[in-house]
Write a protein that binds this DNA or RNA. Structure first.
Lengths: 150, 150
DNA sequence: GTCAGTGCAAACCCTTTGCAGAAAG
DNA sequence: CTTTCTGCAAAGGGTTTGCACTGAC
């Protein structure tokens, strides 16, 4: 595979390269979605991506947004983040890191992997291998009271 | 088959007490659900609870199962575990601990809090307080290969 | 007797799917 | 020209809701 460095600044060409690098055929819709996601904030629900893409003059159908996000995740371009039972978030940061999840606002925020140091990891169940360690720190806005102490 | 007369007096009282302790009115259906959950394995989807409850001669409607699980979670009797976008798990173990999640089988398994030692925790965003730290180690059965190559 | 809880089915919401037409190579 | 992708709308599956009935106190 060609090494197409993605400088994140100029756009269309780099994105096409980025997609190809990940084994993804860079169609028009996929480029739109990729450009929208890699150009801004880094956590998106499918719905947010839908809105961002369709704010511009171009448009992509809902089915294609879902299919594309699933494809990106499978190919390692983005990472799925499961913190909310009602929707999946997609994170353009695929490096090793963790998350704050604000249960009041739904905001998702990165924690650098260097900011959480895990000393001991348990031994894995027999016949399994680790696919990833996710730390989620659920936070809420001070002053508000949840039902349960965590 | 199963002995459906086992908890007529003693189990019922304990469960009723447990519910009351958590500020939950111990109705018949809630007792059934609590008895099913606290009597076996410790991670349940709503659907599993539904099946377990309705295996016996008694029955509880789907709406009541969902409402009850939500109530139990809000009252701190069980803990919601969010690891799978397609369903919520309820954990009868509310003490501080973490989870293995087998992405192949969907199996959820406890990790004692003593088995994971976290050295450094990041500082919280302004105006927020921590509601819980969840560590999820996603595992898969050895030999199987995920899609993510590039 | 009063008020909360329950059951049913329909509503909801996010996500996936089937298929015909369009685009990519 | 062949294969893959896209769009639409409908289906799916877990969860929630509205309302009349039942049960708890």
């Amino acid at each position: 595979m060609e090494n197409t460095e993605h400088t994140q600044s100029s756009g269309k060409q780099d994105m096409a390269g980025l997609l190809k690098t990940h084994g993804i055929l860079p169609t028009q819709q996929r480029l739109l979605i990729a450009r929208v996601m890699f150009g801004r904030d880094q956590h998106f629900s499918a719905d947010q991506v839908m809105n961002l893409v369709n704010d511009s003059r171009d448009r992509v159908s809902k089915a294609t947004v879902y299919n594309t996000l699933g494809l990106f995740a499978r190919k390692g371009l983005v990472r799925e983040v499961i913190v909310d039972p009602s929707r999946v978030f997609y994170d353009t940061n695929t490096s090793d890191h963790h998350h704050f999840y604000n249960i009041d606002t739904g905001e998702l925020r990165d924690i650098k992997s260097t900011e959480i140091q895990i000393n001991t990891l348990p031994e894995l169940p027999d016949g399994t291998c680790a696919k990833g360690v996710n730390v989620i720190i659920r936070i809420s806005n001070t002053g508000q009271q949840a039902d349960q102490a965590g």
